Amino acid sequence: MLNNIFNKKKKYATVPSQQVRPDVPEGLMKKCPSCKKIMYTKELQKHLYICQSCGYHFQMASDERIKSLMDEGTFVEFDADLLSENPLKFPGYEEKLEKDRQKTSLNEAIVTGKGKINGHGTVIAVMDARFRMGSMGSVVGEKITRALEKAMAENLPMIIFTASGGARMQEGVLSLMQMAKTSTVLKKYSDAGGLFITVMTHPTTGGVTASFASLGDYNFAEPGAMIGFAGRRIIEQTIREQLPEDFQTAEFLLKHGQLDRVIPRDELKDQLTTVLSLHDQGGDEAWLQN
Results as ranks from 00 to 15, higher is better:
Lys37Gly: 10
Asn155Phe: 07
Pro244Arg: 04
Leu243Asp: 05
Lys96Pro: 00
Ala125Pro: 00
Met1Asn: 15
Val262Ala: 00
Leu254Ser: 02
Asn107Tyr: 01
Thr104Met: 02
Val126Thr: 02
Arg232Cys: 05
Phe75His: 02
Asp280Trp: 07
Arg65Asp: 05
Lys116Thr: 13
Asp217Leu: 12
Gln248Asp: 11
Ile117Val: 07
Pro16Trp: 07
Tyr218Leu: 05
His279Ile: 11
Gln248Cys: 08
Phe58Asp: 01
Thr184Gly: 13
Ile159Gly: 09
Thr198Asn: 02
Asp79Val: 08
Gly194Asn: 02
Thr201Pro: 00
Arg146Asp: 11
Thr145Arg: 15
Ala180Ser: 15
Lys114Gly: 07
Gly224Gln: 02
Gln242Gly: 07
Asp71Met: 06
Leu176Tyr: 10
Glu251Ser: 03
Pro91Tyr: 05
Tyr189Phe: 13
Gly194Asp: 01
Gln258Gly: 13
Gly92Val: 05
Thr182Cys: 09
Ser135Asn: 09
Thr145Ile: 09
Lys255His: 05
Asp191Glu: 14
Arg168Thr: 05
Gly141Asp: 03
Thr14Gln: 15
Lys114Ala: 15
Pro157Glu: 10
Arg261Gln: 08
Leu174Asn: 12
Leu174Phe: 15
Cys32Thr: 03
Phe6Ala: 15
Gln18Pro: 00
Ile197Ala: 04
Leu215Ser: 09
Gly121Thr: 11
Ser211Glu: 08
Val208Pro: 00
Ser183Phe: 06
Thr112Cys: 14
Glu85Trp: 06
Ala125Lys: 03
Thr14Cys: 15
Gly172Gln: 12
Phe212Arg: 04
Gly92Asn: 06
Ala147Glu: 01
Val111Glu: 09
Gly137Asp: 09
Tyr93Met: 14
Thr201Met: 08
Thr209Arg: 11
Ala13Pro: 06
Leu69Phe: 02
Met1Ile: 10
Gly166Cys: 02
Leu69Ile: 03
Glu285Val: 15
Met70Ile: 10
Leu69Tyr: 03
Gln281Trp: 10
Leu148Pro: 00
Gln271Tyr: 13
Lys8Thr: 08
Leu2Ser: 09
Met177His: 09
Gln281Lys: 15
His202Phe: 07
Lys103Gly: 01
Phe252Tyr: 10
Ile227Asp: 00
Ala225Ser: 05
Gln178Ser: 13
Ser277Pro: 00
Asp23Phe: 10
Asp100Gln: 11
Lys116Cys: 15
Leu28Tyr: 08
Ala213Tyr: 01
